[in-house]
Design a protein around this nucleic acid. Sequence first.
RNA 1: GUCCUCAUAGUUCAAUGGAUAGAACAAGCCCCUCCUAAGGGCUAGAUCCAAGUUCGACUCUUGGUGAGGACACCA
Length: 554
Amino acid sequence: MIHNDIQKLIQDALETLDLHTEVVLEHPSDLEHGDFSSNVAMVLAKEAGQNPRELAEKIVSAIKPNEYVEKTEVAGAGFINFYLSEQFFTQKTHTILQKAEKWGASDIYKGQTILIEHSSPNLFKPFHIGHLVNNSLGEALVRIISFSGADVIPLSFPSDVSPGIAKAVWAILDKNWQDELTIERIGEAYVHGVAEYENHKEEIDAINTSLYNKEENTPQWEVYTKGRALSEKYFLDITKRLGSHFDAFIFESESEAQGKRIVKENTPKVFQESDGAIIFKGSEYGLFDNVFINSAGFGTYLAKDLGLLSLKFTKYTFDASVTVTDIEQKQHFQLVKKAASLIEPQWAEKSEYIQHGRLALTSGKISSRDGGVPLAEDIIDSVKERALVRMRESDRGENEETAESIALSAIKYAIVRVGMGKNIIFDLEQSLALEGDTGPYLQYTYARANSLLEKGNADTVAQVYDRAGLAITDIERLLYRFPSVVERAAQEYEPHYIANYLAELASVYNTWYAHEQVLDGGETQKYKLALTHAVAQTLKNGLQLLSIDTPAQM
RNA sequence: GUCCUCAUAGUUCAAUGGAUAGAACAAGCCCCUCCUAAGGGCUAGAUCCAAGUUCGACUCUUGGUGAGGACACCA
């Protein structure tokens, strides 16, 4: 790795000067400042009693020459900047083309099995805009961590028993929809049930009890099984449309039974009885008290999540369990994890709960079937329509499949470009635009590059070494960084590093494209095509990690 | 009330304790008789407030202010 090589060069230089510190090496934020930069001189200046710039000069003159380093210079307050050589970049372009779809992969998680839980639906409730956030980030993490060498098991945890479901089931019966049930009607029924709960409390609670107890051969059970099947199919359809698949499902009904058992077995050791319910005194650990088993005898979502955690361990063997959820559940999971640690320490040690921000809407131009939160499908369809309009206006014509891919890319990219913890403001007009820092911009850049490759006979580029005098481009200064960006995203569970990197790469390439004619028939054409190919490959691999397609044309 | 997040151009987001805080959208202007104008170029515009730590703070600490969330039988 070039990073380690340069680190070693500095380390060796420091030793000859009898200086000792950890060498921090980073990419300067500005490409003008070189390819790598170190602040060692500034760190050491005080204890060495020297001016940072003078010390930096001394270190620089002690650095041995290296074939991949063109020049080393002192800049700013005492930074030592490294400029890589033409030879390095030329070889790198070749490496990228050789590695092809493996370019950017690493083995940092090699030998590890990681369970990633995301996109857990509430059956009987529609898949709305919030689920899009969870799915996009969850799916990106699945792909990134898997590309980094882990064996990933994507898992979903559908809620199939809850008072909310009882409300929907009651409403279906109330509206007499059981014989002609559709997914739309289930959505409407849920809204109706919630609204009518206070007026039909006893009936609905009775249905809830009967569903928790799995009382078959009742009208509600029949409606429930029918609705549940429809809901599951709907979930599988929408997640498939979004590009996700799951290797495992654990249902809440199962985790509720398991969680209840564990809570009872650990009362009063870990849990206490209080007002007819069983609670965990989180307040003794700086958290808060809350109910695990309610006074009706059913596990709450705390018991369900505890049960889920234990079921993961009985069903699978893994090194880490990662759960992707909304930030509003942060304290909920702290409580679950604390209780788990008191029962079986490894449950807590091996589990990690990561949160993404909440999603808020600014302008709500998209119609919503239940009048509240916009549904995932409505949003996708509405962006897709925009893409189709754009296609009609251009001379390349309409393409249904490409429009779908563009719509998904606009939505996913808007979500995934933002850092994990932060709330996401969805301005449907702006976030889902098709221009600027968007998914379609990256796809467009790819399609453009692809078009050049087709015209320029790209088959030969894999053998290209000779840059025919072409000066080092900013494109190359970014390209070789891709694997380290992926690695950082994988280690920190932060897909947005990849999104931002790809946007920067695309921008630099587009600038170059506007000033340089690739297919000029001259000496440099081959290398320029090789570069184009390397950019296309990097965009493709990176977008793939974000679950965004790269249409050949658009 | 207690606890947890967050606060950067008009807007939506970037920025491993580093250099002149970087983009995009919106605004104004320019570029298709050359490879995809969903593109490129130029102009203007920001770190909530106050202390502190540090050679260096958007970033760390403390105290404010503002927004969102969690806090007993919904998930």
